[in-house]
Design a protein around this nucleic acid. Structure first.
Length: 437
RNA sequence: UCCUGCGUAGCUCAAUCGGCAGAGCGACCGGCUGUUAACCGGUUGGUUCCUAGUUCGAGUCUAGGCGCAGGAGCCA
């Protein structure tokens, strides 16, 4: 039997007899000639099945094979300019491993018509085989590796934080509740508070995993389960936090651009905006962001309110790179953020807003490091002191100014790939009113 | 949760004023040795989302419900 090779290794096997195993992606019936495009996970290759080149029953099997059947095709591999991909297999053997049921629900519509969103999501387990979805998830994998490579290379230690937690970081309304045996428990919506503990051991840390928010947010930017990377740095103030963010984000974008150009091309992504993403990023104070809104379509926007999606878009439209907005009003931000000593009605926070209307991709801040300030904040937000005892305790043993940020993986992936909706950024998205399959 | 729109064949959608349920694609059968979303001929295909109502007659009108899409709020 011929050696089985992966399709992306075709260049090393030209002129040899090889076998391919994979799924039938496309078929064109020309009578005594069949074109079968096989997908094997590494790529896709067109196989040419001539009636005269293989036993009659094998030719008939090939002629009537169904889309997405699992098959093994053997034959001579050669370079072929007429074939998509540049290589082609001249089949001399065709073996059906598993014939797919008929019809394949997601068969391409030749008239240019498209399947509806609901239908596609109900068939997500099969939709994942679509070339566009494959490209997106390969970019996702590369992005994850870039994130980890940069952090690992800049003194950050990966320290995992728990998913099952006893209390909320920011109140219990947005948490998925579960049981820890007989006690109430919640799925983590952030690992940040735990990372503030682990910096005491490692100095610079990050956690990176799924987070859960039971918000009834039904928008293109929200998933109930999403991945977030949260670096945290001891002895670090707001300005340095922003410097780290822009270096980190730029590296991630440029790495994907360099390594996944082929997949970005499948998505039809215009790369000019992304090539522009290099430090430094513009930084504007919240005061100036409000003035910017006044001059660009929102003359009545009041100082003190948080930005909605239209406001973020209006701000980002003024820049050709991601833009920082810093020093937000304290009232719209989380309880643990450090107030600005000069203007205590604002906090040392920074959000990074992506270009092209992709919204906030990073939220960061300097954290409260003074015991009494933090205790007052917990009381002011009517949070249960008992649940935050350990968090407060951190302020009694070597407390110091420290900062960190969270970056939403899927938000960045949407921006990178030019995706219209977050549902394509996760293999099995959990959306408001959907957790199947 | 609010606003707007939609729900008809496996999929995407038509159906005039309330008057016989339609097309393309898919699938199946046949033809074709260079297809790239092939082409040609034939076949197959229906609880018109559910419930109640108006009417001689409802896919179409009314009420309620369910589901989906887009937007908003909230957030990453």
């Amino acid at each position: 039997m011929s050696t089985t090779i992966k399709i992306n290794q075709a260049a090393h096997h030209v002129g040899q007899d090889v076998a391919l195993t994979g799924w039938v992606q496309k078929r064109a019936d020309k009578g005594k000639l069949q074109f079968i495009t096989l997908r094997d996970g590494s790529g896709a290759m067109q196989c040419v099945v001539f009636k005269k080149n293989l036993p009659e029953e094998q030719f008939d099997a090939a002629r009537h094979i169904t889309l997405e059947s699992a098959v093994r095709i053997s034959g001579g591999l050669r370079a072929e300019p007429r074939a998509p991909g540049g290589y082609e297999l001249d089949a001399t053997a065709f073996e059906v491993i598993s014939r797919a049921a008929d019809p394949y629900p997601l068969a391409p519509k030749r008239d240019g018509g498209e399947h509806g969103t609901d239908f596609l999501l109900n068939h997500r387990h099969l939709w994942l085989r679509d070339p566009r979805q494959i490209a997106i998830l390969r970019i996702r994998a590369t992005l994850i590796k870039a994130i980890r490579d940069w952090l690992d290379g800049h003194g950050f230690t990966l320290v995992d934080t728990p998913i099952i937690t006893p209390a909320a970081a920011e109140g219990t309304t947005n948490l998925f509740a579960t049981k820890y045996f007989d006690e109430p428990a919640y799925l983590a919506q952030t690992g940040q508070l735990y990372s503030e503990a682990t910096i005491g051991a490692f100095g610079r840390v990050y956690c990176f995993g799924p987070t859960f928010r039971a918000e009834k947010s039904d928008t293109r930017r929200h998933a109930m389960e999403f991945w977030m990377v949260e670096p945290e740095m001891a002895f670090t103030e707001l300005d340095e936090n922003m410097e780290v963010i822009e270096q980190f984000v730029s590296y991630c974008i440029q790495t994907v651009l360099a390594q996944r150009a082929d997949d970005l091309a499948v998505l039809g992504r215009d790369l000019t905006h992304l090539q522009n993403v290099v430090p430094p990023f513009p930084r504007i104070h919240y005061d100036d962001a409000v003035k910017l809104l006044h001059a660009n379509g929102y003359p009545d926007f009041p100082w003190g309110e948080d930005f909605g999606a239209p406001h973020e878009d209006a701000i980002s439209a003024q820049f050709d790179k991601p833009v920082f907005v810093h020093h937000y009003p304290r009232a719209v931000k989380a309880f643990y953020m450090q107030p600005d000593p000069e203007r205590p009605e604002t906090v040392l926070a920074c959000d990074l807003i992506a270009p092209e209307g992709y919204g906030e991709i990073v939220g960061g801040s300097q954290r409260m490091h003074d015991y009494q300030v933090l205790l007052d904040a917990i009381d002011a937000h009517k949070l249960p002191r008992e649940a935050y005892e350990w968090y407060l305790d951190l302020r009694q043993y070597g407390s110091q100014p420290h900062s960190g940020f969270g970056m939403g993986l899927e938000r960045v992936l949407m921006w990178l790939g030019g995706l219209p909706h977050i549902r394509e950024a996760l293999p099995f998205p959990r959306l408001y009113r959907r957790y199947y399959p």
